[in-house]
Amino acid sequence: MITNHLLTGFTFGLSISIVSWMVGMIGNGILVKTQYYPKLSHLNFIPSRAMNKAIGIEQFKWIVKNTFFSFFNQSIKVESKNTDLSAIRHQMTLAEISHLIGFLFVAAFALFQSFNISIVFGLTMMIPNVFLNLYPSLLQQENKRRIDLLLKRQKTS
């Protein structure tokens, strides 16, 4: 029974996490028109580079850069030194907030399924959600901090 809940929870979590990307984009499209969105563009859940390293953001970044995930958001690429970093930062904010909305959507669904089916099913749903929604959001936050440093250097020079 537990093995069945582990397998089906993971599979269902994987499926709903991918669907949550669309939910995140729609939610972000609505949220971008509000007065709160500029505040959301400066989210910083884990400011420490050491903590990011400890949870494996560097390995996740390698996976994103060196697998098929690198083809997903082509607007977040620095092609040359003349690339508009503000525009890239804006695209990163859009992706970050979309993934956060998707993460919260799946987390709410997993909580519901924890009560409806079993706690094992709900917790297992969160595994793909963390890797497909939370980690991309944390990676965008780290990248935005790096871009903010570059933008700050450009303003001073």
Score class of each variant (00 low, 15 high):
25 M>Q: 14
105 F>K: 00
88 I>E: 06
4 N>W: 10
93 T>H: 04
92 M>V: 00
113 Q>F: 06
6 L>N: 05
35 Q>P: 03
86 S>K: 15
59 Q>I: 11
154 Q>D: 07
50 A>T: 12
36 Y>M: 10
108 A>H: 03
88 I>N: 05
17 S>D: 09
96 E>K: 02
133 N>M: 02
78 V>W: 09
42 H>Y: 09
113 Q>E: 04
148 D>A: 09
64 V>H: 05
51 M>Q: 09
58 E>I: 07
128 P>Q: 04
32 V>R: 15
78 V>L: 13
29 G>E: 13
20 S>Q: 06
82 N>G: 12
57 I>F: 08
79 E>A: 14
109 F>T: 02
122 G>C: 02
62 W>M: 08
9 G>W: 05
99 H>R: 00
134 L>T: 00
12 F>C: 12
35 Q>M: 11
15 S>E: 10
103 F>S: 01
88 I>A: 05
45 F>L: 15
112 F>L: 09
153 R>F: 04
30 I>C: 08
61 K>R: 14
54 A>R: 12
63 I>V: 14
9 G>I: 03
120 V>M: 04
19 V>G: 06
129 N>Y: 03
98 S>T: 01
29 G>D: 13
137 S>Y: 01
149 L>S: 07
131 F>N: 00
57 I>Q: 11
70 S>R: 09
118 S>D: 02
83 T>C: 02
37 Y>A: 08
30 I>G: 09
49 R>S: 14
157 S>R: 12
18 I>F: 15
60 F>A: 07
26 I>W: 15
30 I>V: 15
134 L>E: 04
140 Q>A: 12
45 F>E: 07
32 V>N: 07
102 G>R: 00
107 A>Y: 03
15 S>G: 15
44 N>D: 15
55 I>D: 03
95 A>W: 02
59 Q>K: 13
41 S>D: 11
111 L>N: 02
149 L>M: 10
63 I>Q: 01
99 H>T: 00
73 N>R: 06
117 I>S: 01
72 F>T: 08
44 N>H: 10
71 F>L: 10
92 M>Q: 08
147 I>L: 15
81 K>R: 13
68 F>V: 07
98 S>R: 03
33 K>D: 11
27 G>T: 04
130 V>C: 00
59 Q>N: 12
127 I>L: 02
22 M>L: 15
150 L>C: 02
78 V>Y: 08
48 S>L: 11
23 V>T: 07
125 M>L: 03
119 I>N: 06
78 V>D: 03
65 K>V: 02
141 Q>N: 07
38 P>Y: 12
80 S>I: 05
16 I>L: 15
83 T>F: 07
32 V>D: 10
49 R>T: 10
120 V>A: 09
113 Q>Y: 06
19 V>Q: 06
97 I>F: 01
19 V>M: 15
49 R>A: 13
109 F>M: 05
91 Q>T: 07
15 S>F: 15
3 T>M: 14
75 S>Q: 11
138 L>G: 01
103 F>Y: 04
97 I>Q: 00
1 M>Y: 13
38 P>R: 08
61 K>L: 11
48 S>F: 10
142 E>A: 12
10 F>V: 13
120 V>T: 09
39 K>G: 07
6 L>C: 12
153 R>Y: 03
132 L>Q: 04
64 V>A: 08
86 S>N: 14
106 V>N: 00
44 N>E: 14
112 F>M: 01
84 D>M: 04
144 K>F: 03
